[in-house]
Amino acid sequence: MSMITVKNLRKSFGSLEVLKDINAEVKEKEVICVIGPSGSGKSTFLRCLNRLEEISGGQVVINGHDITDKKVDLNKVRQEVGMVFQQFNLFPHKTVLENITLGPIKIHSTEKTDAEKLALDLLDKVGLREKANSYPGELSGGQKQRVAIARALAMNPKIMLFDEPTSALDPEMVGDVLEVMKQLAIEGMTMVVVTHEMGFAREVGDRVIFMDGGYIVEENEPNALFGNPQHERTKAFLSKVL
């Protein structure tokens, strides 16, 4: 079953066209890694999938909801799509526990005690139960990002989007975050991951998309894409990052 269908997606910022004609499909439980140089449009592509960026043209269907349709209840669709940001974006005025329970309590009208139980389970999963009552400012980058993942998971999403989740982390923190993401993939979460972690893309990705200049240049399963890239631009990019 197709969880994400993207047809002829275009996105412009003023006169600058950053996504030119994107077509992609993500099936249930698939893990798609999006790689490419800076400015290739990969983050913008990801942000179009929950319409954090207004879409200039084309169609994006998320789990059966056409989010380019004017009548769509975007807030409803976003509840099914978790997102993790490069800069974490935790709510600094709320504790770790409150960061995670706020969505379930205010949007799903979950009882506070139930929401807290869920949050603690999720904190167990990301290995941070003992930080439940800390504030984001008291956590390291890697811990923040794991809380951000738990926060997104608390809404019980069908799809998780990751926008360079390890790019702002110290090298020794990257492993913990990738481990949590890998675990999610194993559990069957549908994931789209924009990343510079080629090792992760190769190991965890079911398919890898290489973007450049606002286009999807090449997509394939990881071993084929990394081992035997077809396009010159893919080869040039991989030769620099591998």
């Binding site: 976003r78 978790g82 997102m83 709510f91 926060r151």
Partner: peptide, 22 residues
Amino acid sequence: DKGQTEAARSIGFTGAQTMRYI
């Protein structure tokens, strides 16, 4: 920071809820 709004909206908060809680 704009990221606060984006995080809240990505969870599914409405604009008004984002303003009020975040």
